[in-house]
């Protein structure tokens, strides 16, 4: 192998753990997206992947490039920041859109109260 051999064992184990944990969270969240019954439940599922799921993968990447480069490489932080800030915004907008549509169509399964 080429560049991955340059990483010391302790760091490799740490990176591997972060990668496995992060990607498992993303996978579970996406399975939830398929499995859960109603829209308002499904809106919870992607946040699994976008909070600590993305955090784990991005931390692993930061660690790898920092060790390979011999200096702290932090630009992956921007990806993590971007995901954790934009995902709630889109999900919140989608939640409100769904609420608006449910009220307009007077959906029976999820009747949100309106005063």
């Amino acid at each position: 192998m080429s560049h991955l051999d340059a990483i010391p064992l302790w760091a490799a184990i740490l990176i591997a753990l972060l990668l496995v944990a992060g990607s498992s969270l993303v996978l579970i969240g996406s399975i939830g997206l398929v499995r859960l019954g109603s829209f308002y439940e499904r809106i919870h599922a992607p946040t699994l992947g976008t909070s600590w799921g993305a955090g784990g993968v991005v931390l692993a990447s930061m660690l790898t490039f920092s060790i390979l480069g011999g200096r702290p490489v932090l630009h992956e932080l921007i990806i993590a920041l971007f995901i954790t800030i934009t995902m709630p915004v889109t999900l919140m907008l989608l939640g409100r859109a769904a609420l608006y549509r449910d009220r307009a169509e007077k959906a029976t399964d999820e009747p949100p109260k309106r005063v």
Binding site: Y40, H44, T47, P88, G95, L99, V115
Partner: peptide
């Protein structure tokens, strides 16, 4: 707060009624 609650998998921010 909206970002915090939506980022938390257990809760989702749906609506804030400013009048009430």
């Amino acid at each position: 707060l909206a970002i915090i609650f939506t980022a938390m998998p257990g809760t989702a921010w749906i609506e804030y009624d400013r009048a009430r």
